[in-house]
């Protein structure tokens, strides 16, 4: 894609930088988890980076997103601070949610991040609510709702897409088809292959894009968000991608072959973008090394911040359930 690279070189370099940061964050989380430094369980985004970065790139600070249990990439792409994210994963008081959320529920509503969510399919109905708020107040905002293809089998996702269609809400449904719903192949979970047909059902434009290409995701998301901003209602974006790690860290992954993983790795969103940028001459090897080193240092800092932070006061476990104490 030399012409495209030439035309958008500065943006693509910045997107590359963010994707490398997400990859570095996730890779570090994987090893921290393996070393038993993180409580709970984590679901990693490695392989899917182009989607969060490409889809969120054109968003404004006050636009909204909803996320999933696999939400670290979405959070970074929406501008959340890796220090406070990592601290939350460690269960520390400096984390985004004071140690009450962990990996699966990181949220920062002020930054438009309406929460990672441990319930598959929960995000779209929240996004419809954000869309209703935007519509009620006649605001120039949109809401992007990320969800995995597994969520397409959840009833509430159908209800939400239908309601968004009926109400013409400024919501973009971003389906990340990473080929597996938990540990079962997508084709065994959905009676119709592909998800574009869902767009017809709800009378919304649907588009399937290469989720390993930040440019493709970026372009399609830009079309969809612009349509939403201009009163054109909701859209469905299906991003074909692959989850390199298991459903969760520790997943034995008996359901797929190493050859299949390798096949997808050939199309790695970070590496292919790096190659394109190098080929086009917009970056050289030193630039790439510097970007990767910078990401590594940034995550070093985040880990240090998290390690140095205190655990929350146990008394805080009983605070914040209600707006006023009952």
């Amino acid at each position: 894609m030399p012409n495209v690279v030439a035309e958008h070189a500065d943006r693509l370099v910045d997107q590359f930088r963010e994707m490398v940061l997400v990859r570095e964050f996730e890779t570090r989380v994987s090893s921290l988890f393996e070393d038993n430094e993180l409580p709970g369980f984590v679901h990693l985004y490695i392989g899917q980076e182009a989607i969060a970065t490409g889809a969120c790139w054109g968003l404004k600070d006050d636009d909204y997103i909803t996320s999933t249990h696999r939400g670290h990439g979405h959070s970074i792409a929406k501008g959340l601070d890796p220090d406070r994210m990592m601290a939350e994963l460690f269960g520390k008081e400096t984390g985004y949610c004071g140690g009450k959320s962990g990996s699966m529920h990181i949220a920062d509503v002020d930054q438009g991040m309406l929460g990672a969510n441990g319930i598959v399919g929960a995000g779209p109905s929240l996004a419809v609510g954000a869309g209703l708020s935007i519509q009620q107040n006649d605001e120039d905002r949109v809401c992007l709702s990320f969800f995995g293809e597994g969520a397409m089998a959840e009833g509430v996702v159908h209800e939400s897409m239908n309601l968004a269609g009926v109400q013409d809400l400024p919501v973009v449904f971003v389906c990340e088809n990473n080929q597996y719903g938990e540990m079962t192949p997508a084709q065994d979970q959905h009676s119709v292959e592909g998800f574009e047909a869902r767009g017809d059902v709800y009378d919304m434009p649907a588009e399937t894009v290469d989720g390993m290409s930040v440019q493709s995701v970026h372009d399609a998301a830009t079309r969809a968000t612009e349509r939403a901003r201009n009163g054109g209602g909701p859209s469905l974006l299906i991003c074909e991608t692959y989850r390199y790690h298991g459903h969760y860290e520790g997943d034995p992954m008996v359901y797929r072959t190493e050859a299949e993983v390798e096949e997808w790795r050939e199309r790695d969103p970070v590496d292919t973008l790096e190659s394109s940028l190098l080929e086009s001459g917009h970056v050289d090897g030193d630039d790439v090394a510097a970007i990767r080193a910078e990401a590594s240092e940034r995550i070093d800092e985040a880990v240090e911040f998290a390690r140095a932070s205190e655990y929350p006061d146990p008394e805080s476990a009983f605070e914040g359930v209600y707006s006023e104490e009952l």
């Binding site: 909204y64 909803t66 509503v109 309406l114 929960a122 779209p124 109905s125 929240l126 996004a127 419809v128 609510g129 954000a130 869309g131 209703l132 708020s133 935007i134 009620q136 509430v156 209800e159 939400s160 309601l163």
Partner: peptide
């Protein structure tokens, strides 16, 4: 669910 999302926004 939409009410929850609207309530947050």
């Amino acid at each position: 669910g939409s009410s929850a999302g609207a309530g947050m926004t």
